[in-house]
C-alpha cells in the first residue's frame, strides 16, 4: 500500500544529551509533504528548523518517531535526498564540473557510462546557467554562482526530495532575489519536491505551497501551517501588488513577531 504522501514525518522528537542534561530540540513534529510540493520551514533562530532538516537528510537520527521518504524509512543519509547546504560546501580542489560529477558518478555509475555521466553533469550545470563557468574552481566564482553549483549538484542525482538549508542566507539581497527566481523556474521545470529552511518571510511566501511555522525553542514544535494558494508561475513584480500575497505575508509576520515574539 503506497502512502499518498511523498515525505512523512510522524511524531518526531529530537533530544540531545548535553553537559547540563537532556536538551529537547524539537518535539511532536508531524508533517506531510505531497509529491511536487514546495514546503518552507520558518521560525526564529534556535527553533530547530535546521535540526528537522538534518533529520530528513539523515545526518541526524530522531530520538522518537518515524520519517519516511518516497515509501522508505529514513535511516541515514542517502542520494534519494539532495541537500543544498547554507555555505555551498563545494570541494575547493575540484572544478564546478567535477563537484557535480562526483555526485552524478555516485548515483548513476552502476547503470551508465562515462559520456552519459558527463552529459548529466553538463545538463545540471546548464540548468542553473553555469555552462560558461563549468571548468572553473569554486574560488574563481561568486557566492551566488557557488550556490548554483550546490543546487546543480543536489538536483543532478534526481533526488526524491530536495532539501535546502537556508541556501541564500549568505548572499546579498539582489543576488538572493535572482536566485529565488531561478529556483522557482528550476522547481517548475523539474517538478521537484522541496523542503526549505528559511528565516526570510518574503522568500517563504514567494516560493512555497506550504509554510510550516515553528514555535521558539527549546522544545520547539510546529505552531501553524499556512497553505499558500498563489497561482504559478509566480512573478515577484506581480505579487508585489497582489492582495493575497500580502495577506499570506501578514499571517507569517504575525506568527513570528507577535505570537512567537523572540526576546532579543
Amino acid at each position: 500500500m503506497s502512502n499518498p504522501f511523498h515525505l512523512v514525518v510522524d511524531n518526531v522528537d529530537k533530544r540531545f544529551n548535553t553537559k547540563q542534561g537532556e536538551f529537547i530540540a524539537i518535539r511532536d513534529i508531524n508533517l506531510r509533504v505531497q509529491r511536487g510540493e514546495f514546503t518552507a520551514l520558518i521560525g526564529h533562530s534556535g527553533c530547530g528548523k535546521s535540526t528537522l532538516l538534518n533529520l530528513i537528510a539523515g545526518l541526524d537520527v530522531a530520538t522518537n518517531g518515524v520519517l519516511v521518504c518516497a515509501g522508505r524509512e529514513i535511516s541515514g543519509p542517502g542520494p534519494d535526498r539532495g541537500v543544498v547546504f547554507q555555505n555551498h560546501s563545494l570541494l575547493p580542489w575540484l572544478t564546478c564540473f567535477d563537484n557535480v560529477y562526483l555526485a552524478v558518478e555516485r548515483v548513476f555509475s552502476s547503470t551508465e557510462k562515462k559520456p552519459q555521466l558527463a552529459a548529466r553533469t553538463e545538463a545540471a550545470l546548464k540548468m542553473v546557467g553555469l555552462t560558461h563557468a563549468m571548468h572553473k574552481h569554486p574560488n574563481e566564482i561568486s557566492g551566488g554562482m557557488k550556490q548554483r553549483v550546490g543546487i546543480a549538484r543536489a538536483l543532478s542525482i534526481e533526488p526524491a526530495v530536495l532539501l535546502l538549508d537556508e541556501p541564500f542566507g549568505a548572499l546579498d539581497a539582489l543576488t538572493r532575489a535572482h536566485l529565488q527566481d531561478e529556483l522557482l523556474r528550476i522547481v517548475a521545470d523539474t517538478k521537484s519536491t522541496v523542503v526549505m529552511v528559511t528565516h526570510d518571510v518574503d522568500e517563504a511566501v514567494l516560493l512555497s505551497d506550504k509554510i510550516v511555522m515553528m514555535t521558539n525553542g527549546p522544545s520547539a514544535t510546529i505552531g501553524e501551517i499556512l497553505d499558500v494558494q498563489l497561482p504559478r508561475p509566480r512573478d515577484r513584480l506581480e505579487l508585489a501588488e497582489n492582495t493575497d500575497y500580502h495577506h499570506y505575508r501578514k499571517a507569517v509576520v504575525e506568527f513570528l513577531y507577535s505570537k512567537q515574539k523572540k526576546a532579543a
Binding site: A57, G58, P77, P79, G82, F85, N87, L91, L102, V107
Partner: peptide, 25 residues
C-alpha cells in the same frame, strides 16, 4: 564538517572519501 557532510549525504565510498575529500583537504 561541511566537506564530510557532502560525503555523508552522497553516501560516498571510503575510497572516494579518501581520494576526493580527505587527501586533498
Amino acid at each position: 564538517q561541511d566537506y564530510l557532510n557532502v560525503a555523508r549525504v552522497l553516501n560516498l565510498s571510503e575510497w572516494k572519501v579518501f581520494t576526493k575529500i580527505l587527501f586533498p583537504a
